[in-house]
Amino acid sequence: MFFSPLPLALGLAGLALAGCSATSVPWRNPSVSPEQTRHDYYACRRQAERDSGWREESASGPFRDYDRQQAKAIADSSLKACMVGLGYQPIDRAAADRPKPAAP
């Protein structure tokens, strides 16, 4: 019996893409749609990872811990520069999660 991994791979890819589209990004630009924001964020993130050599899912690779931390810092900086360059502002997640004070 021959087993083809293609249907499984396609299913997993579909799930991964569905997860990406539902995830909110930590940036905002009131003049841009949420879909465009996600597109810009993931494009900037891919470019930052490519430039730095860092990838979140690469738990084991050629980098040692220190090198991985340095690559992550470079990737984060590159991502921020890209998003700010496109007119986005970072969202303060901690402030957004705090309860609002009650009106007097």
Results as ranks from 00 to 15, higher is better:
F3N: 05
F3W: 05
L6V: 07
L6D: 06
L8N: 14
L10W: 13
L12Y: 04
L12M: 10
G14L: 13
G14Q: 10
G14I: 06
A16H: 07
A18N: 12
G19K: 07
C20E: 03
A22R: 12
A22D: 11
T23S: 13
S24C: 07
V25H: 01
P26L: 14
P26E: 06
W27K: 06
R28I: 05
N29W: 00
N29A: 15
P30M: 06
S31A: 13
V32I: 12
S33T: 09
S33W: 07
P34D: 06
P34F: 08
H39C: 08
H39S: 09
A43K: 13
A43M: 14
A43H: 02
C44R: 00
R45S: 09
R45P: 01
R45M: 15
R46C: 14
R46I: 03
R46L: 15
E49M: 11
D51N: 09
G53M: 09
G53D: 09
W54M: 05
R55K: 15
R55W: 10
E57P: 00
P62A: 09
R64E: 14
D65M: 14
Y66G: 04
D67T: 00
D67P: 00
Q69S: 09
Q70K: 03
A71Y: 03
K72W: 02
K72Y: 03
D76A: 11
S77Y: 06
V84N: 01
L86G: 06
G87A: 12
Y88R: 10
P90S: 10
I91L: 10
R93G: 08
P99L: 15
P99T: 00
K100F: 04
K100E: 08
P101N: 10
P101S: 12
A102N: 04
A102G: 07
A102S: 12
A103D: 09
P104R: 13
